[in-house]
Simulated assay, not measured.
Amino acid sequence: MTNAIHRFDNAKRRRSDEHARQAMLTPSYLLEPVRALMGGFDLDPCTEPDNPTGARRFYALPQDGCALPWAGNTVWCNPPYGEARDRWVEKCIQAAHAGVQVALLIPAHPDTRIFQIAMQSCTSILFVRGRLKFGVLRENLRQEAASHGSALFGFNVDLSPLWHLGVVVQPVASQLRLFGSAA
């Protein structure tokens, strides 16, 4: 247990957007099928300066892509995974209400308030099989895997063609309200 204790450090949830360990790039085995499904990305609001997602337009630190305008028809969003992700989820939902197709990758924590808000607003959810490997090397030179499962939310995007990457769920908004939704 002592070897894995760092993975359950609650301080990781409290990191700022700018923290060096927030930069966990989406592995290509997930990113490429999503890019193909959406026909590319018009915007990636929270990426690295070298634009690894290949978005036509992108924001990278020190820019705050959550506060800047989101133009385009397709958005890829893999936000920082700390508590700051709440505002990113809310921004994705706002963009979806404006008709934008959004793919949002966040930790699969269905017990949290923000996850449930996203679930009530999305078109589909892909619960990614296994834990994502972000390509970040640990001290022992093995790839670092997420300490949690991941979920990809599709807002105005049907993720069912990505069934081979995990389990796809298509929430029915009326049923969510029927079973005690706060919406």
Score class of each variant (00 low, 15 high):
M1R: 07
T2F: 06
N3C: 02
A4G: 03
H6W: 14
F8V: 05
A11M: 11
R13M: 12
R13T: 08
R14F: 06
R14L: 08
S16W: 06
D17N: 11
D17T: 09
R21M: 11
Q22V: 06
M24C: 03
T26S: 06
P27E: 04
S28Q: 13
S28L: 13
S28T: 15
S28F: 07
E32T: 11
V34R: 01
R35D: 00
G40T: 09
F41A: 00
L43F: 08
P45C: 12
C46R: 02
C46Q: 04
C46D: 10
T47N: 08
N51Q: 14
P52K: 10
P52C: 08
T53E: 03
G54F: 07
A55E: 01
R56L: 15
R57Q: 07
R57I: 07
Y59F: 13
Y59G: 00
A60K: 03
Q63L: 10
D64R: 13
G65T: 12
C66T: 09
A67S: 14
T74W: 09
W76Q: 05
C77N: 02
C77K: 01
Y81D: 01
G82T: 10
A84G: 14
D86P: 05
K91L: 04
C92M: 04
C92Y: 03
A95T: 06
A96L: 07
A96C: 09
H97V: 03
V102E: 09
A103K: 10
P107A: 08
A108P: 02
H109V: 08
P110D: 06
D111W: 14
T112Q: 11
R113S: 05
I117D: 01
I117H: 04
A118V: 07
A118L: 03
M119L: 15
Q120M: 11
Q120C: 07
S121C: 10
T123W: 08
S124L: 08
I125G: 00
L126K: 05
R129M: 09
L132V: 07
K133I: 04
G135R: 06
V136I: 15
R138V: 07
E139R: 10
N140W: 13
R142I: 10
Q143N: 06
Q143V: 05
Q143L: 04
Q143F: 03
A145R: 11
H148V: 12
G149S: 11
A151C: 12
A151K: 05
A151V: 08
F155E: 00
N156T: 06
V157H: 06
V157F: 12
L159V: 13
S160N: 14
S160L: 15
S160M: 15
P161Q: 15
P161R: 15
H164R: 12
V167C: 08
V167D: 15
V168M: 11
V169D: 03
Q170G: 02
Q170Y: 03
P171M: 01
A173L: 00
Q175L: 15
L176C: 09
L178E: 08
F179Q: 03
A182L: 13
A183T: 11
A183M: 14
